[in-house]
Amino acid sequence: MSDAQIRVSEAPVIRLETVGMDALMVRLFDAIDEAHMPWILAADRALREGFGEDLVDLVPSYTTLLVNYDVERLDQREASACIRDALIGLRPASTAAGREHRIPVWYDESVGPELPRIAERLGVSCEEIIRRHSERDYCAFALGFTPGYAFMGMIEEALATPRLKTPRQKVAAGSVGIAERQTAIYSMRSPGGWNLLGRTAVKLFDRERDDISLFRPGDRIRFEPITRDVFIEQGGDTTPLEERG
């Protein structure tokens, strides 16, 4: 993973939108693109610094940052001014701003039932799908759905697969899935409609760890295929999915 691979988009036009009594949306872009993330990350840092104690929550996503400010200390005019001041002369963050993770994954039909289906659709082997899913770096665009769940992308266009028509009621924690051109890991057992390829033993959200959430927006992630034995050694749960897609 080197900086040389990272594209950075042109400087965005910054738009502010009212979204609630104590919240403003900072809109930077209009489309999903990894090249936008250095700008989103830079804006995230600048806003955290600019607001300091007056910030209640800051939620970066693919193209926007939701600024939830303390209305006991700021009115909307003051919050808008604070955002504009913080973002003057914004420069894209270096990729070093996001951390890098290698996530070992046991790719297997028993825990990733869509693996053979996607292989069949493309007329290639499961090994080929595994290779193509694990050969590139992904960027964490946003966290949501459940604590520590990161929406990552982009996967290669040929692998893009729509969500399941009927979501599963229970998807095991650690399940690795794809939906359209994004990929993600289920951070806890939950319902879910992504196409599953495998499972990791890595805990994405661990209250006993200093970094409770392993991922943060802007982090870079690469998957590393491992065998069933290594998965078990790492503490992985090999229980097959209760429901087929």
Partner: peptide
Amino acid sequence: ISEGIPLGAVQVPPDGQPIILLNDRQTI
């Protein structure tokens, strides 16, 4: 494209019937 959701957001899915998102809403 998914974005942060504030408390009380009144979102309108394709069926045209609003949903008011409260404290336990998803974050985006």
